[in-house]
Computed example of a mutant assay.
Amino acid sequence: MKSFLTTNYLFPTVLLLLLSSCYQQERKCADFKTGTFQFKQEIDGKEHTTTFIRTNDMQIETFNGKTDTATVRWVNDCEFILEKLHPRNMQEKKAISMKILYTKDNTYTFEYAFVGDEKKMKGLVTKLE
């Protein structure tokens, strides 16, 4: 009886594992190198929206009515480094590493951290134009 149950469950389990391992998420990073974007995040229980325009080598973002500019240095098609042009304190002097994890339609999910920092955060960006 044991071998009968093992055989009946083993094949479907292996088949399910094989099929799920073949799934690969879309990564059309080149579609998101330039344009106008929006990023929403929750800070202290309130939703905040950042809008930014990215060219091949610059990013101009507006957050809470303040505009800031950063240089963009692409490491590869899906990863880039942001460095603020006019940092106001030591924290803003730190470069930020950005990595596009996957894309879908007009959005991309990304991971970011200060360069050299172990703690990574994730976010979702929507391309407006």
Rank of each mutant, 00 (worst) to 15 (best):
M1F: 06
K2S: 14
S3E: 07
S3I: 10
L5C: 04
F11E: 10
F11K: 07
P12C: 04
L15V: 10
L16N: 07
L17G: 05
S21E: 10
Q24V: 14
E26G: 05
R27V: 07
C29F: 00
T34P: 00
T34A: 03
G35W: 06
Q38N: 10
Q38R: 15
F39M: 12
K40R: 14
Q41M: 15
E42G: 06
D44K: 14
G45D: 06
K46M: 11
E47F: 03
I53T: 13
T55C: 08
T55D: 11
T55S: 15
D57Y: 05
M58E: 11
Q59E: 13
Q59N: 11
E61A: 13
T67A: 11
T69P: 01
T69H: 10
A70K: 03
T71N: 13
T71R: 10
W74M: 04
D77Y: 01
I81H: 06
L82W: 04
E83M: 14
K84A: 11
L85S: 11
Q91H: 10
I96T: 12
I96E: 01
D105C: 03
T107P: 07
Y112V: 08
G116V: 02
D117I: 01
D117Y: 01
M121N: 12
G123K: 08
L124Q: 09
T126I: 15
T126R: 12
K127T: 09
